[in-house]
Design a binder for these strands. Sequence first.
DNA 1: GCCATAAAGCTAATCTAATTAGCCGAGCGC
DNA 2: GCGCTCGGCTAATTAGATTAGCTTTATGGC
Lengths: 193, 193
Amino acid sequence: MPRGRLTAADVVRAGAELADEVGYQDLAMGALAQRLGVRTPSLYKHVGGLDDLRRRVAVLAVTELGEAVRAAIQGRAGSDALAAFARAFAAYVTAHPGRYAATIGAEVTGPGDELYDASARVLESMAAILRGYGVGDDEMVHAQRTLRCLFHGLAALQAANGFRWTGDTDESFDWMIGFVDRGLRGEKTAVSG
Amino acid sequence: MPRGRLTAADVVRAGAELADEVGYQDLAMGALAQRLGVRTPSLYKHVGGLDDLRRRVAVLAVTELGEAVRAAIQGRAGSDALAAFARAFAAYVTAHPGRYAATIGAEVTGPGDELYDASARVLESMAAILRGYGVGDDEMVHAQRTLRCLFHGLAALQAANGFRWTGDTDESFDWMIGFVDRGLRGEKTAVSG
DNA sequence: GCCATAAAGCTAATCTAATTAGCCGAGCGC
DNA sequence: GCGCTCGGCTAATTAGATTAGCTTTATGGC
């Protein structure tokens, strides 16, 4: 909670915190203004409106997520890197469900778009892992898309339900990592023409 | 568009169509009433409100999806069944992005809940495929969760972006199916203690 | 040191959408 | 034929986002 005057970054950060606390659905201009000790219309001096706020929260989330996974895979390779990536990803989403939810519906246009560029950084970490598995350039995009679906699904279910899976969530998580590892290992010998 | 008086089912069906056409975000009571040739408050005689409508659309979607995938895997097994399941799933989401989007955030409580029961039917189809791969009861729940994440992620990205992946989407899809097949095949020999 | 200015806040007003209250007419069981 | 219930309607309320236009405050030029 900044003491002096607000900046756009302050507003976005507070919005992200609010979304994490009350859920993305309840991220509202009024509640955010209250949290910042300011009247609702004042926020419009910093962000374009609710839609703009949501998008900026999404950008923040993907950027932070990219930093988290990059740090996690530093110095690791193979299934080690894969497991570290997966754990960092899941940990981020668990810690910041509201932020992640903001990214789910966000429109991504193309290069130059902040969200696109931030996503590209996450995909680059993924590509580094895949290269370690011997995935070639020709298959890279398919493998990336597959893993993206898997992790996005994991995150979406986690963000939506708070992951109310009964029993051994950790065990399921380990199983999933093993599954991906097998799928990627098998790939090297099972390339089809 | 029913000529006579409306039923709850009419309203939900029209809501689902509207969501598919204009996007889940723009599913609104006013627009739905207009589509049905009725004033907005009249809808409240059939559904509890917007939240109730959304939930009913989600139930419809998961029910239809369950029927689609069950029909698709009929008489197939192994990677055949897997591919059929995946194609039916993706086809449903492509044809009904708004409906599927309704399911993403929906609250699922437990047995007896319509949405829970409908989801259970989808998971049962998944389990049938996994049994064909030799996945045992002890691992079934983990495998189900993994595939659920993968397909949900696929669907969520599809529903959100309209799947604006460049290039060979079909090829990526085939790669994904191959990946899952490898991950499940490897499983039989790679069971860890 | 003093004013012009722009940024950042505020109040009041507007708009849109959901929802609620309460009235009205048609079909149907008695 | 009478009255009840259902499904529709209009009017009013509420909540929230957004806009308009005023006020204050920090700051740079003189």
